[in-house]
Design a protein around this nucleic acid. Structure first.
Length: 469
RNA sequence: UCCUCAAUAGCUCAGUUGGUUAGAGCAUCUGACUGUUAAUCAGAGGGUCGCAGGUUCAAGUCCUGCUUGGGGAGCCA
């Protein structure tokens, strides 16, 4: 078709769908979801990502000519100029009567993998470069954005300072598992020391370095000056974890607060998560309704329940007691001193309390060295926030600020301290009671979207044996 | 990493006890239809049955190994 005058600025479909300016000309740009019709009239559904809803473009076929519409197939990118009118059809209130159409990019119908029909999430993972164009991933990515924004808004409104902790770390005892090595050494010709080991003094940083598994230790340093801080950045774990809840590269939010005890920490964790879920309910309604209808009929009611109900708080010891007395047949027996299994956590959250649960005061043997020791000598001021379906969404604690107790614990556990002197230093100079926690961003998105697999809530998942795209 | 299930058309799946030329729906293509809504209707094309071995007169089907994916477990956020 001849394109004469398409110089008007485009309007986003989200905005135009709410417009009442009928019989006025507008320009929209987006990707074709479907075209259907007959010799006289065609209907093109166009989506530009501003909303899950499409704009229906009505085309008078004789005016444009059938041949000129052939390129307008599912997946093509177009610019349309036309009049906004009330829709005669049932599925939408307004539509565009096309005057001019420009095809920016075609999409070959034989090879474009996305169909008008639903696809499995497994298949979409194999075409992660195209899956943002589906309703499902459009919804997830918009929700993901809204949650990232709400996280910054929440902390900013509360006076927390966003601190950028390093991605590359030189300490290997951050305490959270296997790390990815960062090196510029030639792997085919590694320099060796006299006793045959790899000579990292010749590496880029002059020492062994890895990708961070947590920004907590550096976060604590900043909290010892700014009082309330948070980090929000990528985190890397080289664990060979093959589950719907783990990624090798994920995003984590780690607030760290001076002068907070464990109860303050729990209050913050609950308020924070409830704020985020409420923000989603208020700002992502269309997307949540889509996910509710397509994937999880209880999604929205579950989100509303979390916003409106306090999380159940109890100690590890009380939880073990409940589990022992439950009469439930667990695959793994419950006993004081061992870590709770997934099935135990699920029982507490999904059967016994039927609401989010915060477990505190775990045995010190199963928790990290930096957690504050209780007077009983057996437990530490740890807290895990457990959510239905996804399990642990938050892990945190009050930190041990006593120099001697921290040092004793480090010695007991034989933790190498040569790369951590700076952390221990904070307990020497103006030590303060403080607390913090880590929230797995993708696990939050799992909960908010109702998705079942963490690979479907991040654009390009990194998992063992998979770094495609 | 362990346990378990699976892999057949572009997608989702069926394929009987091992037995003739491997099927369906959707998608695609062609045509029909004056307002469709995952449009509808008619017809057509489309297969190295994940890969490599093995058993057998005969393997999509049985056996072994590998690869990839799902679910469960561990590690955790």
């Amino acid at each position: 078709m001849q394109v004469k005058n398409l110089i008007m600025k485009r309007i986003k479909i989200k905005e135009l769908l709410q417009s009442k300016e009928f019989n006025k000309e507008f320009v929209i740009e987006g990707w074709v979801r479907t075209r259907r019709g007959n010799k006289n009239v065609n209907f093109i559904a166009i989506n530009d990502g501003s909303t899950i809803n499409n704009m229906q473009v009505v085309v008078d076929v004789p005016v444009f000519g059938e041949e000129s519409l052939k390129n307008i197939t599912t997946g093509a990118c177009v610019k349309v100029k036309g009049l906004l009118v009330n829709s005669q059809g049932q599925g939408q209130t307004v539509e565009i009567h096309a005057k001019e159409i420009l095809v920016y990019g075609t999409a070959d119908t034989e090879t474009f993998p996305l169909q008008k029909k639903g696809h499995t999430l497994e298949f979409l993972r194999t075409i992660a470069h195209l899956r943002p164009r589906t309703n499902t991933f459009g919804a997830i990515l918009r929700i993901r954005h809204n949650m990232a924004f709400a996280i910054h808004k929440y902390f900013n409104d509360k006076g927390f300072c966003y601190v950028h902790t390093p991605i590359i770390t030189g300490s290997d005892c951050e305490g959270a598992g296997q790390m990815f090595r960062v090196s510029t050494l030639d792997f085919n010709n590694l320099p060796k020391t006299e006793d045959g080991k790899i000579d990292f003094s010749q590496d880029f940083f002059g020492k062994e370095t890895n990708l961070t598994v947590s920004g907590q230790l550096e976060g604590e340093l900043a909290a010892m000056a700014l009082s309330e801080i948070y980090t929000f950045g990528p985190t890397f774990r080289a664990e060979n974890s093959n589950t719907p809840r783990h990624l090798a590269e994920f995003w984590m939010i780690e607030p760290e607060m001076a002068f907070y005890d464990l109860e303050d920490n729990m209050n913050l964790a609950q308020d924070f998560v409830q704020y985020l879920v409420k923000y989603a309910l208020e700002n992502c309604k269309d997307d949540l309704e889509f996910l509710n209808n397509m994937y999880d009929k209880e999604l929205i009611s579950r989100l509303e329940f979390v916003v409106n109900n306090d999380f159940k708080r109890l100690t590890y010891t009380e939880a073990v007691d409940i589990l022992v007395k439950s009469g439930e047949k667990f695959e793994y027996p419950v006993s004081w001193g061992t870590d709770l299994q997934s099935e135990h956590e699920r029982y507490l959250v999904e059967k016994h309390f039927n609401k989010p649960v915060i477990l505190i005061d775990y045995p010190k043997e199963i928790k990290a060295f930096y957690m504050k020791q209780n007077p009983d000598g057996k437990t530490v001021r740890a807290m895990d926030v457990l959510f239905p379906k996804i399990g642990e969404i938050i892990g945190g604690s009050q930190r041990e600020e006593d120099f001697n107790k921290l040092n004793d614990r480090i010695k007991e556990l034989n933790i190498p301290t040569k790369d951590m002197w700076w952390y221990i230093d904070t307990r020497k100079f103006g030590a303060a009671p403080h607390s913090g926690f880590g929230l797995g961003f993708e696990r939050l998105i799992l909960f908010v979207t109702g998705m079942a697999n963490i690979r479907d809530v991040i654009p390009f998942p990194r998992t063992p044996k998979n770094a495609e795209f």
